[in-house]
Design a binder for these strands. Structure first.
Length: 351
DNA sequence: AAATAGTACAACCGCCGATAA
DNA sequence: ATTATCGGCGGTTGTACTATT
């Protein structure tokens, strides 16, 4: 069905915004919140469509926007996230505070993409151009592991972004709190921390931890322990390890499960039933992560990891789930990092 | 100094998913 | 269950600005 564009109405202005229009828009939102974007232009006395107003506010007028040059760290983050998420700019933006998706997208197209191309890296696959021609089978196990990790991390980031979005929706309703967007001094009432953010933080922490083990080369000790920042639970991380996620597609679970089938430890329960639940069968990884996180952290579960897999210890009141996540020997971030470092060492100083 | 090419980024457009009617 | 509407997203364009020839 054809729906006319919202700006097709007669008399509506297009093109660059004037200072006067900006002022009208800001003044209106400061006083009333944006409410319905569709209805805003008329109420605010603007000859613009709602969509245009929204865009102007989101990408330019909002007070909590950082403008100006991207830092080295921001650029690296964008490249890394793009490698995992592709052109999901809004998801990427949730990991770069105060930057808009539009700004990130523009920066990618005008700077970062070109730099990667100069470095001989395919900006879409994030692989060296020569390698990009090789099939995954030809790339061997490392490529497969890399892909596992990318999917895992991508799912995690997506789940986290979803939560951030959900949380901001809760607090951004103009009827509830119209002023939250307007000044950094006015702080919106803090929404209750979603449980699964905790476990996602933990994962983030875990990945970061592995990254630092590798870069410091301190691999002598068989395990290292990372603290969960909020729950107080510990994760034991085996040396030179990396996570990949559960599910037939991502690991050979059948084999791994045998290692535990012999144990009669009542503190651990088999995860397979959890995943085989038909309700979850059609879920993507991000959804499963969210659910799993809720279940685990909601019950103060403790995660433990041995050399090949991670288990979620059943706590007193935890009835329905535990976790099982395999560990592989490749770090996606490291690969990406060394990829970028090595090519910048050979070529022109890119970063 | 003028013309041209390249860059930066604001803004628009069309599509899609969620949701209300 | 269907349709209409809205908000949000990603792709793309238009234009102002800057560098180069």
């Amino acid at each position: 069905m054809h729906r006319p564009a919202c700006c097709e109405k007669e008399g509506q202005k297009k093109g660059p915004w004037t200072a006067e229009e900006d002022q009208k828009l800001v003044a209106y939102i400061q006083q009333h919140g944006h409410g319905s974007w569709r209805a805003l232009p008329e109420k605010a006395g603007l000859q613009r469509c709602g969509k245009s107003c929204r865009l102007r506010w989101i990408n330019y007028l909002r007070p909590d926007i950082k403008r100006g040059k991207f830092t080295l760290l921001e650029e690296r983050t964008i490249i890394q996230l793009h490698a995992l998420l592709g052109n999901r700019w809004s998801v990427i933006a949730t990991h770069l505070p105060k930057r808009t998706d539009n700004e990130i997208k523009n920066h990618w197209h005008t700077h970062l993409k070109k730099r990667l191309i100069k470095m001989g890296i395919d900006p879409m696959t994030h692989k060296p151009k020569a390698d990009a021609m090789v099939s995954p089978a030809g790339g061997g196990k490392n490529a497969a592991n890399l892909s596992h990790m990318a999917q895992w991390e991508s799912a995690r980031l997506e789940a986290e972004a979803r939560l951030v979005g959900r949380r901001s929706k809760l607090v951004s309703s103009p009827t509830q709190n119209p002023s939250h967007l307007l000044t950094n001094k006015t702080v919106a009432p803090r929404a209750a921390r979603p449980k699964c953010i905790d476990v996602l933080k933990a994962w983030q922490c875990l990945v970061a931890g592995m990254f630092s083990f590798a870069s410091h080369g301190t691999l002598e000790s068989p395990t290292s322990t990372l603290k969960f920042p909020y729950s107080g639970a510990n994760i034991q991380v085996p040396e030179d390890s990396i996570l990949s996620f559960n599910g037939e597609k991502y690991l050979d679970r059948a084999n791994k499960m045998q290692e535990f089938e012999g144990t009669s430890d009542p503190n651990f329960i088999d995860m397979s039933a959890w995943f085989e639940d038909p309700f979850r069968a059609g879920n993507d990884i991000a959804n499963i992560m969210e659910e799993l996180s809720e279940d685990i952290m909601g019950n103060s579960g403790v995660m433990k990891m041995n050399s090949s897999m991670m288990r979620v210890e059943k706590s007193k009141n935890m009835e329905s789930c535990s976790g099982i996540i395999t560990v592989e020997n490749r770090d996606y971030w490291n690969s990406l990092h060394s990829l970028v470092s090595s090519s910048s060492a050979v070529g022109s100083p890119v970063f």
